[in-house]
């Protein structure tokens, strides 16, 4: 594996190797000394063309815990505003001898383009409305920890699937397993996934019934260029997760959310802070999973 740009392009074997390696890194993160020399001497650049706090923080900490040297390149302070092309930016960065490029971009496909044009490993940290592979991997890791399996589960994904790269990467990831994926939300925000085994619901009550996993998505107002639903209040009334609706899922169902939360919109505070919520575990697991991804790529892409 040289790059991680899309869940669709990696095998089930790759997925499982990432998940089992992540378990070892999670154990490292529980020690007093949370840093290992695994990628000592390697250089990683975080190339974020889109605002991000949590994903960037998570990647940066993962890189530091692997003993890499970290370069942060964020757009408002970079030469991109001076008119440099993407390829020139990448070539310039590559000339520093960078081993891995972590990229987030508002346009889908940019990580693919860079992966094709660079010797460095490329990790997609979210591209437009396309994919967010490390988020899907950390979701799978979190589910596996709680449910001991990724097969035979009923997984309800609720909200703005259309704009959600998280939802898409999860759908692609779970196509490797025998779990049932249910997509729930306003019709305008639920695209069709041809060739994937998913079912579609407009009513949250119907869709959530008997679910083992309830995965909430963030309403992405920044990507809404037209009216997909009347108002946030109406959205909360029709598709928000509250205590009553959660009761329709299995008793031991877990609630997930990729963050940041819009409390009172897609999820009520009492559910987000309840014992069934594993939202903060997802954050911790994200660190372990990203360490695993970068460790495995760094190991395989030695020149």
């Amino acid at each position: 594996m040289k790059d991680l740009v899309s869940i669709r392009e990696i095998s089930k074997e790759n997925i499982e190797s990432i998940l089992s390696t992540a378990a070892s890194f999670k154990a490292v993160l529980k020690r007093d000394i949370k840093k290992v020399p695994a990628l000592r001497g390697k250089t990683v650049v975080n190339l974020f063309f889109e605002p991000s706090t949590r994903t960037k923080t998570s990647f940066e900490l993962a890189e530091k815990r692997l003993s890499t040297d970290v370069l942060n390149f964020s757009v408002p302070t970079s030469s991109v505003v001076k008119g440099e092309t993407l390829l020139d930016t990448v070539r310039t960065i590559e000339s520093y001898g960078v081993d891995c490029i972590v990229i987030r971009h508002s346009s889908s496909g940019v990580p693919h383009f860079i992966a094709k044009n660079s010797h460095a490993s490329v990790v997609n940290a979210g591209d437009g409305t396309n994919e967010h592979p490390t988020q899907a991997l950390l979701d799978a890791f979190s589910i596996l920890e709680r449910k001991d399996t990724l097969d035979g589960l009923r997984i309800a994904i609720i909200g703005d699937v259309h704009h959600s790269r998280v939802a898409k990467s999860n759908i692609y990831l779970f196509s490797n397993y025998k779990s049932e994926i249910r997509l729930i939300g306003p019709p305008a925000l639920i695209p069709e996934f041809k060739g994937y085994n998913v079912s579609y619901f407009n009513s949250i009550e119907e869709g959530i019934e008997g679910a083992d996993v309830v995965m909430m998505l963030r309403i992405q107002s920044e990507r809404m260029t037209k009216g997909f639903f009347p108002s946030t209040l109406e959205y909360a009334n029709l598709w928000g997760l509250n205590r009553q609706r959660l009761k329709l899922a299995k008793k031991d169902a877990i609630v997930m959310h990729p963050g940041p939360l819009n409390r009172g919109v897609e999820i009520t505070s009492d559910v987000a802070d309840s014992g069934q919520s594993i939202i903060l575990e997802q954050v911790t697991n994200g660190l372990a999973v990203r360490m695993a991804v970068m460790y495995l790529l760094g190991r395989d892409n030695e020149q």
Partner: peptide
């Protein structure tokens, strides 16, 4: 695995197992 000095030199890398 995380402490090896032959990362990338060794052709076949071993599976990462747990430390306990």
């Amino acid at each position: 695995s995380f402490y090896r000095d032959d990362v990338g030199i060794r052709k076949q890398q071993p599976v990462v197992r747990s430390s306990d």
